[in-house]
Lab assay of single mutants.
Amino acid sequence: MPVRRGHVAPQNTFLDTIIRKFEGQSRKFIIANARVENCAVIYCNDGFCELCGYSRAEVMQRPCTCDFLHGPRTQRRAAAQIAQALLGAEERKVEIAFYRKDGSCFLCLVDVVPVKNEDGAVIMFILNFEVVMEKDMVGSPAHDTNHRGPPTSWLAPGRAKTFRLKLPALLALTARESSVRSGGAGGAGAPGAVVVDVDLTPAAPSSESLALDEVTAMDNHVAGLGPAEERRALVGPGSPPRSAPGQLPSPRAHSLNPDASGSSCSLARTRSRESCASVRRASSADDIEAMRAGVLPPPPRHASTGAMHPLRSGLLNSTSDSDLVRYRTISKIPQITLNFVDLKGDPFLASPTSDREIIAPKIKERTHNVTEKVTQVLSLGADVLPEYKLQAPRIHRWTILHYSPFKAVWDWLILLLVIYTAVFTPYSAAFLLKETEEGPPATECGYACQPLAVVDLIVDIMFIVDILINFRTTYVNANEEVVSHPGRIAVHYFKGWFLIDMVAAIPFDLLI
């Protein structure tokens, strides 16, 4: 008679799926529990143990900040960024110097990925580790590398530091407007667009060049630039800015003055950032001319202004700041037409079709709590990747769950009947059967004279019903998954307890 339990259901295979997918890609990662103190490590794979030199037993239950890997060259700011990422709910990448158990130093890129439950609360953290440099290539500990984003994938490793954006290309926007319009339909740009040429040739750093990471940081200074100062900065030398009595002219307006920039070969870094931020506020060169004239017309309804409409929906549905990093990277690809469009465009503009998908598509409701890094690593669709929660398995109709209350009560009843059979069957065979043979035949009273025979008949009927119930009862397979398919249940029961239950259900007393 089957006594099969499996009270692990309803099970959740999400954690096993993450481990299996990460292991298949030869990654070095740990999984931490966000619900406990210090976000203790609950799993670390073999790749991480080989990377740091510690065994799994030495890593388990330690804080996922990996303070046991810190050393003299470990930056405090990087460690603080990892700790801050564990307090938030967004994906974050941090470069930090770690030390192995043998004392060797290596520069590592740590990717902190939160995993949320159905309520939107962070319950786990996945920390992925990628070695960037070994100890002989690690720089000085005073050099802070965590304020910069990861290198873009479309640049060669040897040319990542030679990417320079020439400031004269930004200063000569109005001069290039006529050349853009003359391109017409034969050019790649839309009317009114501004073409910015980027020099990728390796050259020595000069005062006129600005690194790509500095251009990325310009967006942080746009908020500090007032509207009046932006307007004066875009007017140009024809209309000098008016300053109040006793007030000095704005240095932001002076930063885009061609006369002032041409007199000296070098520009201050602050002026460069502010000038680029001011130019980015204009949607095209037409807006710059309109600002000089004193009238700013409404933005025209053409394809170039609607190019950012799908980007707005993608940004609203993005799951991490990696989408913004990807957008900034692609927006700086050289030799393309940049349409400086305000994100607050007309909502009635139709979304044009684009061959290049900048932001990841909208994630469906079932995966809105899973970050983009987890979705990318697992390579699963929205119909396959579940949320991290207890999910009731989908069972067929008329199927009994093996952990249901009805099955528990039924098993206790069958257990009592088995005990009765084990006690009274030998007793009936030894004593009652002998008395029946010696006594007179009682054929007239039937079952009324033999109450134990009636009980034995009921017990046999219950055993037959138990066999039928076992054909529709779920079970737990070797992978700790609840199986509810009727065919698989029948095959599993035939290979197991079916023969024993059938022999126990045969009414031998009635056959004798």
Rank of each mutant, 00 (worst) to 15 (best):
L267F: 09
Q25S: 10
L165H: 14
L69W: 01
R148M: 11
I288V: 07
Y43P: 01
Y99G: 01
G6L: 11
P202T: 06
L256T: 05
M60R: 01
A79E: 03
A277K: 14
R181C: 15
T337I: 05
R181Q: 07
R164P: 14
S283Y: 05
L256M: 05
M60C: 05
L165G: 15
D287P: 14
N339Y: 01
R76A: 14
T74G: 01
E134D: 12
E365W: 15
L225V: 10
F98M: 07
D144T: 15
A293C: 12
A172M: 01
D286F: 05
Q81K: 11
D199E: 08
L256R: 12
P114L: 01
S209A: 03
D144W: 06
P245G: 11
R269C: 14
K373L: 07
V279S: 14
V377Q: 01
V36P: 06
P299Y: 05
V374N: 04
Y99A: 01
Q81H: 06
R281Y: 15
R4P: 15
P150N: 07
S318M: 01
S207G: 12
D213V: 05
I330Y: 14
S272P: 10
T65E: 07
R73E: 14
D346K: 07
Y54G: 01
F68Y: 04
G306H: 14
V370Y: 11
S304I: 11
P241C: 15
R5D: 09
K161N: 14
R56F: 01
D144I: 12
D323G: 12
I126F: 07
I336G: 15
R92G: 13
Q84D: 13
V36K: 15
K161S: 06
T201H: 14
D67G: 06
D259Y: 09
D323I: 03
D144H: 15
P298W: 04
E372L: 04
K21F: 04
D144M: 07
R366K: 07
T367G: 15
S304R: 07
A97M: 09
F48P: 01
V138W: 05
D199F: 01
T74E: 01
A193V: 06
P334L: 01
N33Q: 07
E214R: 08
K116T: 10
A142P: 13
A277Y: 12
E357V: 09
L167W: 15
T145D: 15
P241L: 12
R271N: 13
R77H: 13
L127G: 01
V132S: 12
R148D: 07
A211K: 15
T201G: 14
V113Q: 07
N339T: 03
S304E: 09
V222Y: 15
P386F: 05
L338Q: 12
T74L: 01
V132T: 11
G6C: 11
D219I: 02
G381C: 15
L315A: 15
F129E: 01
L378S: 03
T319K: 07
R280I: 10
V198M: 05
H143P: 14
V377S: 04
F22Y: 14
A350W: 06
T305R: 12
D16G: 13
K93W: 12
V195Q: 01
S266M: 14
P298M: 06
C44K: 01
S275N: 14
L378W: 07
N117D: 06
T17Q: 08
P251Y: 13
G238D: 15
V198K: 03
